[in-house]
Design a binder for these strands. Structure first.
Lengths: 326, 326
DNA sequence: TTGAAAGCGTTACCAT
DNA sequence: ATGGTAACGCTTTCAA
């Protein structure tokens, strides 16, 4: 019976035929739950989002990653389980491991919020438990740990250099009080480019309260006000932590009568769908989010099927997409 | 033991104490899989997306719905399983029911693509199997079927009326060859308003090949070309099937040197995050997508816990948000 | 090649 | 109030 369902060649053709008929007649459906219990494997991978913001799927980047994961999981007949931390977002190791221990998932893709060290204990716990996982946008080491990243630092470096080449000198960076590992890397790239250009003194960072466009507007607002208060000149360029922030920032600039890119150049990050449709079309650093989701899922599934990939650190290239905003 | 874990009051305090200690010492974790097998209930709800486009999570509306579902599921300690049709998107009843029959989910939220009748057989199959589900944006009847909708027709009607009140007469609608139940309703609202204004002859519909902004640009392009070919005047207003399309359409209008809203008013649908940040800020019909996801999940979970809601048809109100594009 | 039986980790039931 | 046992539906192993 089991041998028939799984197409194993140890059954005589006519026996197989009989069994198949019975299956059809009884409208039999194998229970994946029972299979899971017996085989100690659920054929499901989890998406563990360590972000207290319940609206995280609405972030275009997360959505793209999710789409890539889902596509790949389906292709390999794996299920995808969405898992969020209950409540406040501060996880104990126990909570994190729960879906593994309870047999719900065989592996997980982990998306972090917060600074890169804030969830170190969580990753340590995963490692110590010996479970299989892939972390997005974050270096990680461990027996069964993969990491899938975009070239965030390179991208931010290239974007800053482009602005410098265009003669911009007062280049500001928009980040957020809600930290996020990729942003640290982007900041690093920005800082390095400024330092190498001898403009360390011009480094200027303004935080958004969150990762929405409304937050981006707040950050831009704060930036301009700070300049006014201190009698500093306005920045002549802004590198935004991501496109969503950039959109809000451009809105504020327009409201203030500042021309983009004439007065202030703006470059975003991610190249989300709407980047080319805002006015002016947004120059940005493309991050291959969909591909990252795919890659992470592929690595985990290959590992689960006995084909672990020796390369644990996967960095997908970013690309500067020059449009008209900067 | 089971009684202790589930806090049943049939155990003596000191026995409970002893068991709890053992649990801690052995680092015991209940297996949800075994629980599922034993109780014939997985404590998971599925999101069945009958859309062949693998990038569906990147659609802002879907993402918001997903966020609402995820939030609610987590709150009630339910898992959320993402389920896509394998491959082409044309589902057999068998494939649709698979996650139910295999015990992976106790209920599902179903998002349809295609015309409202194209998946009728799928919904019939769900009904006939007696499984619990909620359909988004689509009327449904059945023993265990809920439907959660936005007031699509009302919204489109109100938007069209607003344009008429502003003196617009040549109002076009942007839909898509990739149909979608909600769009049929929006079209109905548009048609009804035009008919009631005696402008049935002016009804003009241009399709996008998909639901991206690029598609919206194609639809707008096609619309203008059709007018030119037939020697018709350009439309003085456009009601887009959703905001994503509207963004692409506005882009084309600007490229052609047409002023929004001076020459052509544009109204979108959904009120996604970026609607207020495009230029000019997009007038649109707000659809409470997050709330719809929440509601659907709540209805299912309440039903599963023995508290079925008598009202099966839930229509959440839409609201016309007037900004500057129309 | 086939059929029977054990066991995966729970919970529900039934003796104690 | 407690401990033992069967059963959930499958796969694997072992004997026939």
């Amino acid at each position: 019976m089991s041998n028939v369902v799984h197409n194993r060649p140890v059954v005589k053709p006519d026996t197989r035929q009989r069994v198949l008929e019975a299956i059809a007649k009884l409208d039999y459906h194998p229970s994946r739950v029972a299979q899971g219990l017996r085989q100690q494997a659920s054929r499901a991978i989890g998406f563990l989002v360590l972000d207290p913001n319940p609206r995280w799927p609405a972030d275009p980047l997360h959505a793209e990653v999710l789409a890539g994961m889902s596509e790949t999981a389906t292709k390999h007949d794996y299920s995808l389980l969405l898992d969020r931390p209950p409540g406040n977002g501060h996880l104990t190791a126990r909570e994190l491991l729960q879906p593994f221990r309870s047999g719900q998932i065989d592996a997980a893709i982990v998306a972090l919020a917060g600074t890169s060290d804030s969830h170190q204990h969580a990753l340590d716990a995963l490692n110590q438990a010996g479970v299989l996982f892939a972390v997005l946008e974050r270096e990680i080491e461990g027996e069964c740990a993969y990491s899938v990243m975009g070239a965030n630092e390179d991208g931010a470096y290239a974007a800053t250099q482009k602005l410098l080449r265009d003669g911009r000198r007062q280049i500001a960076f928009l980040d957020s009080t809600q930290m996020w590992p990729a942003i640290e890397l982007r900041l690093n790239g920005y800082r390095r480019a400024m330092r190498e250009a001898g403009l360390e003194a011009n480094i200027l960072i303004s935080p958004s309260p969150d990762w929405t466009s409304a937050g981006g507007a707040v950050a831009m607002h704060g930036l301009l006000e700070r300049c006014e208060r201190k009698g500093l000149p306005y920045p002549d360029a802004v590198l935004a932590g991501n496109d969503v922030l950039a959109v809000g920032a451009m809105h504020v600039l327009r409201e203030r009568g500042l021309h983009v890119p004439g007065d202030v150049a703006v470059i975003g990050f991610d190249d989300f769908e709407f980047a080319r449709y805002v006015d002016p079309p947004l120059t940005t650093v493309r991050l291959p989010a969909y591909e990252m989701g795919k890659r992470a899922a592929e690595l985990l599934i290959a590992h689960l099927e006995g084909r672990p990939t020796s390369q644990r650190r996967h960095i997908l290239p970013t690309e500067l997409i020059v449009r008209q905003s900067g």
